[in-house]
């Protein structure tokens, strides 16, 4: 592998870091309970082991804590672009000319180790978590996929709505589009694979199901989830407002309840 003169002059004694310079790094390096891999030249990802298993909230809690810790330590670093917690993983996006990728991985590994020693409580809610009751109009013109979802699972439409609106959800993370909260806690009977070909336009405030999660699209966008209803904006706070601090209504770790408003 070729290195710049600058790079080769920096001797790294840590065997872990040396291993990072191999192109094979993209296959990932093991940490306790997690794996770190590079993502392009601008990002590294920490992913929890067995991330494809059922979404245990405790595991997601580790990601929240890691994101929080990394943010505290490194958000001010000029090379950092973004710190993005997602589904059982966290991505750090940086300027590739700021520091070597191995340096970023070492920083991340340090946070992860420190966190493991702290013995994070997996039962207490995330600091500052709020509870939201969100009114939703299900089906009809607002939920064009509701019938299809019911059919896929052999349930009647009403049952789908009942199951969807009686669960307690947690905001696993916010992503995809401004203020879009990925909600964990979907009834297993409603879990539906994403569409193979995403729709080019889903109307704003659509409530949808994708895989093991549910969520609300705050703005018009393309998307691959099944639309089952519409968040009622006339009487409720907007999901995202750029002039509000913070701009997103739903934040990582919050609790969410849906209320069937057109029953």
């Amino acid at each position: 592998m070729t290195t710049t003169p600058q790079e080769s002059s920096q001797k790294i004694s840590d065997p872990f870091s040396e291993a990072l310079d191999q192109e094979s790094l993209q296959h990932g390096l093991k940490l306790a309970g997690a794996r770190v891999y590079t993502y392009g030249e601008t990002a590294i990802v920490l992913e929890l082991e067995k991330a494809s298993d059922s979404l245990a909230p405790a595991k997601q809690q580790c990601i929240w804590a890691l994101a929080h810790l990394f943010q505290q330590r490194w958000a001010e670093h000029p090379g950092i672009r973004d710190i993005v917690p997602a589904n059982h993983n966290m991505t750090i996006i940086f300027d590739p000319l700021s520091e070597r990728v191995s340096t970023w991985i070492s920083k991340l590994r340090q946070c992860w180790q420190d966190l493991n020693q702290q013995n994070i409580s997996t039962t207490t809610p995330f600091a500052g978590a709020r509870t939201h009751q969100l009114a939703v109009a299900y089906g009809g013109e607002y939920g064009p996929d509701l019938k299809a979802v019911a059919q896929i699972h052999g349930l009647d439409v009403e049952e789908v709505i009942k199951r969807h609106s009686t669960s307690m959800y947690t905001v696993a993370f916010v992503g995809f589009q401004p203020g879009f909260a990925y909600l964990d806690g979907l009834d297993p009977a409603l879990q539906t694979p994403r569409l193979a070909q995403p729709r080019t336009r889903i109307p704003a405030n659509s409530v949808a199901i994708g895989g093991r999660q549910t969520g609300i699209y705050p703005a018009d966008s393309p998307g691959g989830w099944h639309i089952i209803g519409r968040y009622i904006t006339e009487t409720q706070t907007s999901l995202f407002d750029v002039n509000r601090e913070p701009p997103s209504l739903l934040a990582t770790g919050d609790f969410v309840n849906f209320v069937w408003a057109n029953a």
């Binding site: 993502y39 392009g40 601008t42 990002a43 990802v45 992913e47 991330a51 494809s52 973004d82 993005v84 997602a86 589904n87 059982h88 993983n89 966290m90 991505t91 996006i93 993370f173 992503g175 995809f176 589009q177 990925y182 193979a196 070909q197 995403p198 999660q213 966008s221 691959g224």
Partner: peptide
Amino acid sequence: NSHAIVPGTVQLPGSGEPIVLLADAQTTG
């Protein structure tokens, strides 16, 4: 599992036709 997305990522969805994500790409996918 949903993960963060950086511009430049080439996704290969079920249709088999790749998409190179650009500046306005969603933050996770």
